[in-house]
Design a protein around this nucleic acid. Structure first.
Length: 476
RNA sequence: GGCGGUAUAGCCAAGUGGUAAGGCAGAGGACUGCAAAUCCUUUACCCCCAGUUCGAAUCUGGGUGCCGCCUCCA
């Protein structure tokens, strides 16, 4: 079974066939670095990172490019307000982006290009569009001429009349058509600007993605992703520009993917509604694994609702996954016996069946919600095996751990077992207290035993007693 | 007004025409010094109405609710 993706170009699921066998070119719209990114931005970063991981898991060599937009109106305003340069602002929030993205387990792109570092490419892209007859210069601005582009509106499935009915027509318009959009904006006092054939100025919003994706991925790329709200105008414009610039007649993008919106308490997130939540704030309140779990628990195209309840439910789900891993690790240390009469072949065939189901779910438009359902079936299989057998052979542990690791490399919602991975002084102290507590319990000194347990609990360490001894983990 | 999405248990959520995955929460039980974890048991008139079909959560038509885009917000 091969990968099928829902392509917004055709609004149908299509079999994924890359341009070059075994290779995938993937461009994902990145943040405008004028502030911390918000929890709604985090959704595409997380879900498309999972798609990237899945493609790699399936053996593709993926080139993943995600830009930083470091010049636009918002950047300029914020920099003015903070009395710093636009570049300083960008440096700061690129660093903050990386911090939050790393915390959320989002892998760094292969290339993270910045608009301001690609001004020559942007200018030459604009020049090619003009040369090809699809843009015009107007008082130092350059506009894309949408009337010259018959395909305009084909991505968002709107006809020009309907789009124009909603378009804002500003007084003193320098455009020929209200839907024409700026490729290059003439310099305004106090704003960063660069020399160009049309005078000093700066790039428009959409053109950077065209210039940079073409530079790093070529004129015809496999996958381009972003939030649904980018479909129009951003992606529509990008496609028009890129294809007008390349002049090859090839589509800019073969598969357009858009994630659904994230709502907060059933409302659109907006600064005016006062319900704006940055990823930074969310990370203070909820474990990163829980945020990922939440993002992946619904299909990426469905809307999701960010509420305290949904995050708490997600955290509880993560706990179940993590408990399975730590129970497994603990049992591997205490109950491993290759003479066990555990029926490995049956276990293996059950794991294989689930593996097939997992792949089927991921291949179906990366249905992470269904894939997570399978992961919980794997957990159940491991848990019941642990429950029903006094001792288990090496093969059981190897297969189980490999399965959890494999799924977690794709979804990133389990994480490591604290007792396995931490070996510092604190871990040693925990082990020492556990030993002391075990002796107290043996002596039926439950007062001391419970005291140790609650002391550790206050430090975020949870103890669990098993017939084979006491195991520990950190609270999420 | 134009375009599009969505409606499944208390909550989150998957679902390929053949009598509803999974998670969270709840109830009862096993295990436990007590906990915790785990396991067992238990919880659905699939928004409404009509139609197609041997058979519909799934397809068609019509309602209703919610949401998004058309405003450089992922």
């Amino acid at each position: 079974m091969s990968l099928v993706l829902f392509n917004d170009l055709t609004r149908t699921k299509e079999k994924f066939t890359p341009i070059n066998k075994g290779h995938v070119s993937f461009y994902s719209c990145g943040p405008t670095v004028y502030d911390y990114f918000h929890i709604g931005n985090a959704r595409p970063f997380i879900v498309f990172d999972v798609l990237r991981r899945w493609l790699e898991h399936e053996g593709y060599s993926v080139k993943f490019v995600q830009n930083f937009t470091d010049i636009d109106d918002k950047m300029i305003h914020r920099a003015h307000r903070e009395n710093i340069t636009v570049q300083q602002l960008a440096e700061r929030f690129i660093a903050e982006y990386n911090k939050d993205a790393d915390a959320l387990g989002i892998r760094r792109p292969d290339v993270a290009p910045r608009a301001t570092e690609h001004i020559p490419e942007i200018i030459s892209t604009i020049q090619r569009i003009i040369d090809n007859g699809h843009a015009y210069v107007s008082e130092g601005d350059v506009y894309f001429d949408i009337r010259s582009w018959p395909k305009y509106g084909s991505l968002c499935k709107q006809n020009l009349e309907d789009l124009e009915a909603g378009a804002r027509i500003e007084p003193g318009e320098k455009k020929r058509d209200p839907l024409d959009f700026a490729l290059w904006k003439a310099e305004k006092p106090g704003e960063p600007s660069w020399p160009s054939p049309w005078g000093m100025g700066r790039p428009g919003w959409h053109i950077e993605c065209s210039a940079m994706s073409s530079k790093y991925l070529g004129d015809n790329i496999d996958i381009h992703s972003g939030g649904v709200d980018l479909m129009f105008p951003h992606h529509e414009n990008e496609a028009a520009q890129s294809e007008a610039a390349s002049g090859t007649g090839k589509p800019f993008v073969n598969y357009w993917l858009h994630n659904g919106f994230l709502l907060i308490d059933s409302e659109k997130m907006a600064k005016s509604l006062g319900n704006f939540v940055t990823a930074r704030e969310a990370l203070k309140k909820y474990p990163p694994l829980a945020i990922r779990f939440f993002m992946l628990s619904a299909h990426y195209r469905s809307p999701i609702n960010f509420t305290p309840e949904s995050l708490e439910q997600a955290a509880a789900g993560v706990e179940r996954l993590r408990n399975c891993r730590s129970d497994l690790d603990f049992a591997a240390k205490t109950r491993r016996d290759n003479n066990s009469d555990f029926y490995v072949d049956k276990f293996k065939s059950e794991l294989d069946d689930l593996h097939a189901k997992f792949s089927e779910a991921m291949n179906d438009d990366f249905n992470t919600a269904a894939a997570m359902g399978v992961l919980f079936d794997v957990v159940y299989l491991i848990n019941t095996s642990l429950k029903e057998n006094e001792s288990l052979p090496e093969d059981f542990f190897t297969m189980s751990k490999n399965a959890l690791n494999e799924y977690d490399e794709i979804l990133g919602i389990i994480g490591s077992d604290d007792a396995e991975t931490e070996h510092d002084e604190e871990a040693a102290e925990i082990e020492r207290l556990i030993k002391e507590r075990s002796e107290a319990r043996k002596a039926k000194n439950f007062a001391r035993s419970d005291e140790i347990r609650s002391e550790l609990k206050a430090r975020g360490i949870v103890l669990e007693d098993t017939p084979q001894g006491t195991k520990w983990k950190r609270e999420l």
